Amino acid sequence: MNQLFRLSGAVSRDPNVDPWFAAGADELRSLARLWFDRMRACGPDVRELLHDGQPTACVGGAAFGYVDAFTSHVNVGFFHGAALEDPAGLLEGTGKRMRHVKLRRGQPVDDAALGALLAAAYRDIRLRLESAS
């Protein structure tokens, strides 16, 4: 359970993250920002940075979530998403660890279910960090 994807350079507010959202001032970047702001609000220990060009949320340097905006959808991703319970069936992907939720223009978002996944991902990374120490 304690495998971690660690990144260096995460800070409480990375000055490169907000310009990322402004670079494509459209509906999808705004949607990505909404969900990244929810990641930021998970706890006082959340840090952020751009990793592979995507706003990424970490705790103790261990990544737990990211957002990315494409031409037709937004991904809200989880580095340990395969370990998360997903009763609403929102998660997509077949990788060993990562999963994401695709948010498409004009389609409703299950705010409660996605919010629960965010909270679970945050709790999960904190547990992984505790067991790693």
Rank of each mutant, 00 (worst) to 15 (best):
V101K: 01
R97S: 13
A112Y: 00
M1E: 09
L129R: 03
A121D: 03
A41Y: 04
P108K: 14
E27V: 14
K102F: 01
A25C: 09
P87Q: 05
L127Q: 15
G60S: 09
A83F: 00
A116F: 01
T94V: 11
A121C: 10
A10I: 04
L91G: 04
A88D: 05
Q3L: 15
H80R: 12
D68Y: 02
E92Y: 01
F36Y: 10
P55M: 04
R126F: 03
A119H: 07
M98F: 04
L84E: 03
D45A: 13
R97P: 00
Y66L: 12
G95N: 01
D52T: 13
Q54K: 14
S133Y: 07
R105G: 08
D68V: 13
D68R: 13
M98D: 01
R123N: 08
V59C: 10
P55F: 03
S131K: 14
W35H: 11
A25V: 10
L28W: 00
E27M: 12
R126L: 13
L4K: 01
A112G: 06
G9I: 09
A62V: 08
A82F: 00
D110H: 01
L91I: 08
L34F: 05
A82V: 07
D52R: 15
F21T: 06
P15N: 06
Q3F: 14
G81C: 06
R104D: 12
L34G: 12
H51Q: 12
L34Q: 13
A57Q: 05
R99F: 04
R97M: 13
R47Q: 14
A57G: 06
S72H: 12
E27S: 15
A63T: 04
I125D: 02
A120E: 05
D14M: 09
V59Y: 01
S8D: 06
A10D: 05
K96Y: 02
L49H: 00
